[in-house]
Design a protein around this nucleic acid. Sequence first.
DNA 1: ACCAAACTACGAACACCTTCGTTGACATTA
DNA 2: TAATGTCAACGAAGGTGTTCGTAGTTTGGT
Lengths: 129, 129
Amino acid sequence: MRRKSLPRPTDAELAILRVLWQTGASTVREVHDALSGSQETGYTTVLKLLQIMTEKGLVVRDESQRAHVYQASESEQKTQRQLLGDLVDRAFGGSQAQLVMQALSTTRASRTEITAIRELLEQMEEESK
Amino acid sequence: MRRKSLPRPTDAELAILRVLWQTGASTVREVHDALSGSQETGYTTVLKLLQIMTEKGLVVRDESQRAHVYQASESEQKTQRQLLGDLVDRAFGGSQAQLVMQALSTTRASRTEITAIRELLEQMEEESK
DNA sequence: ACCAAACTACGAACACCTTCGTTGACATTA
DNA sequence: TAATGTCAACGAAGGTGTTCGTAGTTTGGT
């Protein structure tokens, strides 16, 4: 039973994961091309990263084709929550609410977003009753 | 005019910064002792870290005493905001609101915290008018 | 069947992070 | 003053992250 939580993805790894979340399962070439828009990374660099990420369990690899197909093993939301949890522990003394407030205070959220957040709040209050 | 933003503090550096924010300007020994509660770090390790952090500009050093006194060069809030901004860029596609919602959805905030957040929201709505 | 293109695998280089031992200077105390 | 303790500085080691060159294999086109 492997239930160990996955390691926190590094910066380069996160950039790759974002591609996989956005475009779904992809080959190295597809990831590399998608990445080329924002940064200049060599093809073999992306390949190596994906190999390492496979070892770490951050992605799963389908080797049935010649060009292996990679897929993020955790959802974007779950990873985001993990990263937030890490940050809460490391920089906010464990107070998630503190983080939320700090984030809110620098946000220029649109009207719709504010409404969405407010709805979330009401839902929380409901549950904590 | 050195206006470059400071580098993102590493995990070990952040642990030290937290001590400095909490207890104010401190000597290496004081930081080390404070840290001993939570982790096992050698004295010279803390010293080295603080020296590196001085070079990076993360802390400022007062050498007027034999035991140098270190102080965080940025406030806790400013650093927290920087870290949040980094995370927003790296993992949330630049959407701060997205981060807030994700954080909220896993928060067990107390009633008072919810109220505080709600007030912040109203304030934001006020300003965006 | 041959050549060029695309692919994986591997290793190595380099930078950075973290750790700690050692050294030499300075201070305190017996 | 001699011994002991505290301090900053330095270097080095071991780990990890990121990069890419090279080699070898497979595929597709001619």
